[in-house]
Structures are given as C-alpha cells and as structure tokens.
Amino acid sequence: MSTKHMPNMDKMGGDDVETIVGPSVRVEGDFVSQGNIVIEGQVSGSIKTEKNLRVEQGAKIAANVTADSALIAGEVKGNIKAMNTLELTPSARVDGDVEVKTLIIAAGAALNGRCIMGGDAGLNGAKTRVKSGSYEDNNLISKES
C-alpha cells in the first residue's frame, strides 16, 4: 500500500510537536498555532494551524478546523479544511463539511457532511483512497481486505 499521500505523523512527538491539549483539559476560543497540534482533550471555538493536526481517540472538538494535514481519530463537530491530506481512522466521527486535496477514510470512520475535493490539483486530479480497497482516481472501489 502506497504511503505517498499519508500525512507524516510519525514525526509528531518529542521536539517537533508544538502544542498539546491533554486529555483532562478544555480549550475554549480561537486556537491558532504555527506548529503541529495534538488534541487529546476538548476544544470548542476554532482551530487553525499551518502544519499538522492530530485528533486522538477520545478527543472532542466542536470547532471549525483548518490545517495543512490532519489525522482524525476522535470526534469533530465542525467543518474541516486541509490543504493536503485528511485521514480518518476507524474511530473517527466527523459531523461537518470536509474540504481537502487527498482524503483517506478507514473502514469504520463516519463522515456526515459534504466532501469537497480538489485544491491545486483541481477536481479532475482529486484522489480518494479507501484503505480496505484498491486505488483509483476519482473512483471508489471497495473490496474485502
């Protein structure tokens, strides 16, 4: 399986992570960062970062999200805009519109909202990949894994 379009979340730990919202913490307001963000708690308002966002399992976000790339494993109630890649893991629950260039949805993830894809590549170049299926431009082909 090609990993070319997956957000590089391996480096999000230690020195490279700039902001961490821990599991027992609630953040209310407009949350803006220039670096990576990891959310394990609750955030309401808006979230904006120029780099990567990771929403861990158990995290709850009631906010619009803007990031370069995002990995969602928790709950998001709001619109998500990712300049590059958005990945939804099996535990992800997204209630809102999604605007992204490359979308990766794992089996079991829930997405309730509109999905707008394209960006620089344009609609014709949009790529969607289903983890349990095969990869085709603009076509979803699901297969049993």
Binding site: S24, V25, R26, V27, V32, G45
Partner: peptide, 9 residues
C-alpha cells in the same frame, strides 16, 4: 484568544 480550563481540578 482562548481559555484553558481543567474543570474543577
């Protein structure tokens, strides 16, 4: 811009 709370702890 934002407030950080830890409930009642």
């Amino acid at each position: 811009t934002f407030v950080v709370k830890a409930d009642k702890e």
